[in-house]
Write a protein that binds this DNA or RNA. Structure first.
Length: 257
DNA sequence: ATGTCAAGAAAATCTTGA
């Protein structure tokens, strides 16, 4: 089973790019972030025509997440990250697909640091830790993937010294990441490529893609049941070079049956 | 501080978030 995550940066504005990528790579499951569209403007018809079933949780202008499945049925498990009834941002979706609990998330960016947005990021991370612990206790195969808006280590940043006070690389954000992973999760891409420079995001500014000035912020976390099944992982780097592309690349893993 | 995008409000540019 091939599972992908892709921050599409506007599901309608960049729909041709999404459809071209789905047609080319045909992932079994695709987790999308930053739909930037309310529920009623989700392009279901085009996605069904591309061969996918979908569950989604949209929001006007910002955020929004979706999970697509080609072959298997999708059973939605939840669309809210527990822990804050006042949080109305659409950033979290859980679905059961082919016996795997798939979590699609769009973690808050958190800039500027310091400030209320950074505080929101950390509190969101704390809520995620709680939910992730529950998921581990289910003893079922779980994949948590999406745009975590965190570069875990220096190898994940083209110029680490420039990013020390950015919310994506602040020590608090990285600590939160490692606390989460420390529960017993495996960073799938790093498991297969411990030392390789791998980027999943390139800013629109200053020709970041052409200069390979990237970040690794889109991740897959696997529960123990799935680690022995991890067959391959990669980044569809070339998609970032397409016209009207998102600033993120699709990232994927392949699991043995 | 800068740079590039898209969506939304509003009425052709400006604001916002990333």
């Amino acid at each position: 089973m091939k599972i992908a995550t892709y921050n599409v940066n506007g599901v309608n504005g960049r729909l041709p790019v999404l459809l071209k990528w789905l047609e080319e790579e045909k992932p079994d499951v695709a987790c999308l972030q930053e739909l930037k569209a309310p529920n009623e403007k989700f392009p279901l018809e085009a996605i069904e025509k591309a061969g996918y079933k979908a569950v989604w949780h949209g929001q006007k202008s910002w955020n929004g997440v979706a999970i697509l499945s080609r072959e298997h049925e999708i059973e939605e498990i939840g669309r809210v990250l527990p822990g804050d009834p006042d949080d109305v941002q659409s950033r979290y979706l859980e679905a059961m697909i082919n016996g795997v609990l798939v979590v699609c998330l769009y973690l808050p960016n958190g800039n500027p640091y310091p400030g209320p947005k950074f505080d929101y990021k950390l509190s969101w991370f704390a809520r995620l830790e709680k939910r992730a612990k529950q998921l581990l206790d289910f003893k079922t195969p779980v994949v948590i993937c999406g745009d975590f808006n965190v570069m875990p280590t220096e190898i994940d940043v083209y110029k680490p010294e420039r990013w020390v006070n950015d919310a994506l690389f602040r020590v608090e954000s990285r600590e939160a990441w490692f606390n989460l992973v420390g529960q017993g999760w495996t960073d799938a891409v790093r498991k297969l490529y411990p030392d390789k420079v791998i980027y999943t995001f390139f800013d629109y500014f200053r020709n970041a893609y052409q200069r390979n000035a990237g970040l690794r912020i889109d991740h897959f976390l696997l529960s123990d049941e799935l680690v022995p099944k991890l067959k391959a992982a990669g980044v569809d780097h070339h998609v970032r070079g397409w016209e009207k592309s998102s600033d993120h690349c699709p990232v994927w893993i392949e699991l043995r049956k």
